[in-house]
């Protein structure tokens, strides 16, 4: 962040330039806004905005194109990794990212994300996991926790009826084409800082054309979960992280090419 003087006060934090100057449609306390901000901060710091083509998805983040000062293409539900593949292959010098939720990436879009990873596409998937279909009214997602009540699992997710939470990022970490897979969260101020460093590593590896990169961010859905925003973040910290442990799942660039 550039240090500058305004009315004699020295700015140490301000809204990133890569964000459009508008209010978002997200509900109060929704983690999407935090993740958008982290991505925009990195666009500023790494000077990526002018070279970036974003690939949208379907779900609460469908309007992401409204908020970033980058070119953007919309995708059908789940298909963002395929769309991003098409963009990146014909524009090999651009920075290309998808921004997808857990319904989009881990249910309807599993084939597209797995094969984008398998091909080692030089794209970054920003995967915001809040364990619910927020946009359509809080239905059960593939990532919904066992026992979690949603509008389509009213008695709580029962594995006999509805299976188990999908650890999609662990699955993607197994694929040799995946250069980097990590899971962070925006549940606390410390974790927000850590999430940014995970995103930064992924962006750097895309710039180095290292292969497919994905950062999963555990986030919240205060409205869908029926909680206040602070309580929802506490729930992520206390309960969700237990099912989805945080950390770097694979960093093949660091491990060296032999591990590929």
């Amino acid at each position: 962040m550039t240090v500058q003087l305004t009315d004699n006060r020295r700015v140490i934090y301000r809204r990133p330039d890569a964000l459009q100057d508008k209010s978002t449609h997200y509900c109060p306390g929704c983690g999407h806004g935090i993740v958008h901000r982290l991505v925009a901060e990195l666009f500023d710091e790494m000077k990526l905005t002018g070279r970036t083509i974003g690939v949208g998805s379907v779900g609460c983040s469908v309007f992401a194109y409204e908020y970033f000062k980058t070119d953007f293409v919309e995708s059908p539900h789940g298909r963002a990794p395929a769309v991003a593949t098409g963009v990146r292959r014909v524009q090999p010098d651009k920075f290309v990212f998808t921004y997808q939720g857990d319904g989009d990436l881990a249910a309807i879009g599993t084939a597209e994300i797995v094969h984008a990873a398998a091909r080692g596409e030089n794209i970054t998937a920003i995967f915001v996991n809040n364990g619910i279909y927020g946009m359509t009214g809080g239905q059960m997602a593939p990532t919904t926790l066992l026992g979690q009540k949603t509008t389509s699992s009213p008695l709580g997710r029962d594995p006999v009826l509805a299976g188990y939470p999908v650890p999609i990022t662990e699955m993607l970490a197994l694929v040799p084409g995946t250069a980097y897979a990590a899971r962070g969260s925006v549940a606390t101020p410390q974790l927000v800082g850590r999430a940014k460093s995970l995103l930064k590593r992924a962006f750097e590896l895309q710039e180095a054309k290292a292969g497919f990169t994905i950062v999963e961010i555990l986030s919240n859905c205060p409205v869908g979960w029926g909680m206040t925003a602070p309580a929802s973040m506490e729930h992520v910290e206390k309960d969700v992280i237990g099912t989805y442990p945080l950390g770097v799942l694979v960093d093949r660039a660091k491990a060296g090419p032999e591990s590929k």
Partner: peptide, 10 residues
């Protein structure tokens, strides 16, 4: 932690 980037800090 702000999802709406309302703060400028000096």
């Amino acid at each position: 932690v702000c999802p709406d980037t309302v703060f400028t800090v000096y």
